[in-house]
Amino acid sequence: MPVFYETEVTSRLMLGTAQYPSPAILAQAFRRSGAGVATVSLRREAGGERAGQAFWDMIRELGVHVLPNTAGCHSVREAVTTAQMARELFDTNWIKLEVIGNADTLQPDPFGLVEAARILTDEGFAVFPYCTEDLVLCERLIEAGCRVLMPWGAPIGTGLGLNNIYGLRSLRAHFPDLPLVIDAGLGLPSQAAQAMELGYDAVLLNTAVARAGDPAAMAEGFARALEAGRLGFEADPMEPRDMAAPSTPVFGKAVL
């Protein structure tokens, strides 16, 4: 199982905790899928006197690793402040770093991301950056101290799957030993299986599960797809070829 900053997690599935019909259904999704990490957004929930406490307690009770995120932050300063608040609230130095660069596509601001990653690493955070599949950006994030990369499959909440297979494959090839997580854009279990077949270590998703008609069933579907895709990757698949090659010999067959 993947190891993030010296901590081994129990599943290749990481789930967000927003948009579920109810916290009870959220908990079912975790139980049925065995997801090992829960991301929690702080920004919108924050209020005076720790007003989101009741919900956060429910997340803690799931008994999985909590990965607070800086969702909705559009600047380095916002993201850093949110991360500091998260560390206090959840008693973890893990932070999923989001610095949004465009309000419509919600794509990461690569420049702000590197800057925030550097600041947070210096402050002792274990940074999980939500990034694009751009190789140079990923190199800069590693230089800034990131030991995990979380490139998008497609923009957040779109369910479009892996938009740039080539880029994702080359990222895997360039960083063979670094944990790589597909974060955002997945809509179907088959897309998660595909991420596994590319050799990715885990996937993080929210909308695909939370907005499914039956979130718990969809979460389990993703968990199984991850298992199938990972087995396929580990089994060293054949290479596709143009020439048909029969799996049973054709010579010597009677011609009727």
Binding site: G47, G52, A54
Partner: peptide, 9 residues
């Protein structure tokens, strides 16, 4: 619809 018990703000 925000997961927060905060009232009035």
């Amino acid at each position: 619809q925000i997961e927060s018990g905060e009232r009035g703000r």
